[in-house]
Design a protein around this nucleic acid. Sequence first.
DNA 1: TTCATGGTTCGAATTATTTCGAACCTTCTG
DNA 2: CAGAAGGTTCGAAATAATTCGAACCATGAA
Lengths: 110, 110
Amino acid sequence: MSSSPDLPHPERSELSLTTVLFALSDPERLAIARQLVDGPLDMAECHLSNPNVPKSTKSHLMKVLRTAGVVRNEANGRARRLSLRREDLDARFPGLLDAVLSAEDGQPKP
Amino acid sequence: MSSSPDLPHPERSELSLTTVLFALSDPERLAIARQLVDGPLDMAECHLSNPNVPKSTKSHLMKVLRTAGVVRNEANGRARRLSLRREDLDARFPGLLDAVLSAEDGQPKP
DNA sequence: TTCATGGTTCGAATTATTTCGAACCTTCTG
DNA sequence: CAGAAGGTTCGAAATAATTCGAACCATGAA
């Protein structure tokens, strides 16, 4: 039986624009979202720009994305399957995700 | 002669996506940006949801928007003329501003 | 069944952001 | 010129976000 922690996700109707923008306003989190555009990834396949950051920090970054509704995080064996909530985001904020993911970053935040 | 403080603005090429997203991730700042969508406004015409916030706080909100490159702030007599940097933002991050400004907010951040 | 893997969560410490009053600076008006 | 209007800036205080280690928890393999 599969019963790794079942993490809370906001429903589509609960998504908040400013919260989503905030989640994507961090370079590391934005980079994570971008790694998911081509399909779900297990957390271990999702790489941070700095490979030395501890797993608790990585987990926290994921939490911000998840609680904002940008990403879904479901148990997958002993791993975690991450996926972009594209349908929900597109429905709620049309064009936003495409604009963000296709934009060139420019100078990242210091 | 006109010489109110000439505030620094980032150039188009210096705009950073994450910085712009951060600037717009606050409900008050987002609301300001939205008031500018139909054209420039003097700062005094730009209203905050809470009318009791001191002018130094309002000034700070404007600074975040300005230094992110979302808004231009130029002297206009003894007032300040605020305008959306739509051309620059559209050039740099196509579709982003439209998506953000036309989106429905949903639950604002607590 | 025991152990390693791949995670989450908690709490404390650090760091970043926000808020506000006070001081200041121009410009406009009388 | 004096004063008010409309703002910016500077600190300091309060609040929020990030970072990280330690403890923990399931799952899959041996």
